[in-house]
Design a binder for these strands. Structure first.
Lengths: 170, 170
DNA sequence: AACGATAGTGAGTGGTGACTCATCTTGTCC
DNA sequence: GGACAAGATGAGTCACCACTCACTATCGTT
């Protein structure tokens, strides 16, 4: 499980099950005993990952500081993407036969809450909607991964997205 | 060639060469006679596609209207992505053995020109840089494709990005 | 019509990767 | 220590795909 996380984080979901088994120091058969299908293994991994993200978002909600919480979450998620290719697959619901279609629900709710608080605090434009934020999130993660954003470029690019969401000074 | 364009547009670069041949109404051997390697076929396709994009950008530069040209180009490119999965592969330089690494150069130059004119016209913040615009472009295309943006969502999401790039009224 | 050249064919090859299963190992209970 | 269950093994199967090549069809030239 840990090994699988590593392998998929490094190589993405198209990494072979053999590679996962090798890294875990077991035989392929063992992997397939625990997870009848590669998709099952991926789903289990995704579930854990999703939970982490939701916890992260919840922690930011609890911490207060609504003016920056959403942006902070955004930045962290994109950072994580750079180191973990599984995240993108999760967000893109790609490479999995039975898509985790609605599985993003909890994450979306968490983002919605962060957004709502940011708006109530007057930090984010009132007309920004959750689906737009999710769309930007997916785009930023995908872009960071495939476009090879450096930390500096990431900061500047996210800065533009944030500027677009920020409420103009009254 | 036309068939290949269709197939890769629909299924992305991982479509099989057999499928391309079938669609073209020829045998696989024929495809490989013209393009010794799948990568060669892809490269040829990408080259044409890239040229189209550059021409598109150049036309917008020539048309004047520097205040909206960049955003117009941005929107068109993202729209095109929705219908053509090859575009993303091009922007991500993915799925091709010999990457077209520097091949994006002409496109980047065209974007740079659009950006510079937008800035000179006072429509775009002076501190926005070309690499940021390219990063947003890649992100938007990837996001649109894997996030399944509807036309409405696309409009609103791009709107946020554009707002982030737009110069505040003086 | 005979010839070579050029293009087209499609069964075959090799490699890869998901998944299986007969066999072996380990642990547990009496 | 013997018997049984639960887990682990890894060579093997099957499907898919990029790519090859011996052969065939078409065409322009003489």
């Amino acid at each position: 499980m840990l090994a699988a996380e590593e392998v998929f984080a490094e190589q993405g979901t198209q990494a072979s099950t053999e590679e996962v088994a090798r890294r875990a120091g077991v035989a392929v058969g063992t992997v397939f005993r625990h997870f009848p299908t590669k998709a099952d293994l991926l789903r289990a991994l995704m579930k854990g990952l999703l939970q982490q993200l939701v916890d992260d978002a919840d922690a930011l909600v609890a911490r207060g500081d609504p003016g920056t919480a959403l942006f902070e979450f955004f930045t962290r998620l994109v950072e994580r993407t750079t180191a973990n290719r599984t995240v993108v697959s999760l967000l893109a619901a790609e490479g999995i036969d039975v898509p985790i279609a609605g599985a993003l629900g909890p994450l979306t709710s968490a983002v919605q809450e962060l957004l709502r608080r940011g708006q109530r605090a007057g930090a984010i434009r009132a007309e920004v909607r959750t689906d737009e934020v999710m769309a930007l999130l997916v785009g930023a993660c995908q872009g960071a991964l495939y476009g090879g954003w450096s930390p500096d470029l990431r900061r500047r690019t996210l800065g533009i997205m944030f500027a677009g969401m920020t409420a103009p000074p009254v």
